[in-house]
Amino acid sequence: MADTETRATPWLAFLVGGLLVAVVVIGLVMYSGGGVSAPEAKSVDINLNMPKAPALPDAPKLPDVVPAPK
């Protein structure tokens, strides 16, 4: 009887198929005009009337120079 054992590698077929799909997609994008066009510029004007923040209280005064311990 003939030996029916094959040494086919399914992962290689999957890899070649993936590369083929990638080449076809890149070809279609290039054929259709080169991909995504730049968005048009928009002008945005924002005017906000925010209330002023409350004034902070005065910080405590630091003591005068304290003599060094003897």
Rank of each mutant, 00 (worst) to 15 (best):
L20A: 15
A38D: 11
P63S: 11
G34S: 04
V36W: 07
S43L: 12
G33D: 03
V24L: 03
A13D: 07
L62S: 12
V66C: 10
V21F: 03
A41R: 11
V24P: 06
A22Y: 00
D58R: 10
V25H: 03
P67M: 01
T6K: 04
P57V: 04
A8L: 13
A53W: 02
V23N: 09
L15I: 02
G17R: 00
N49Y: 08
L19H: 09
L20F: 04
R7W: 07
M30H: 10
F14D: 10
W11P: 07
I26A: 14
N49G: 13
A68P: 10
A53S: 14
L20R: 05
A68L: 05
L15N: 06
V23C: 10
L15A: 13
L19F: 10
F14R: 06
V44D: 03
R7C: 12
L62C: 08
G18T: 02
G27H: 04
E40H: 14
A53L: 04
A41P: 11
L15Y: 02
W11L: 15
P10V: 02
L28R: 08
V21S: 09
P57F: 01
P67K: 04
L48H: 05
P57N: 02
A38I: 03
P69K: 01
P54S: 07
G33V: 00
Y31M: 09
D64T: 10
P57Y: 01
D64G: 15
M1G: 15
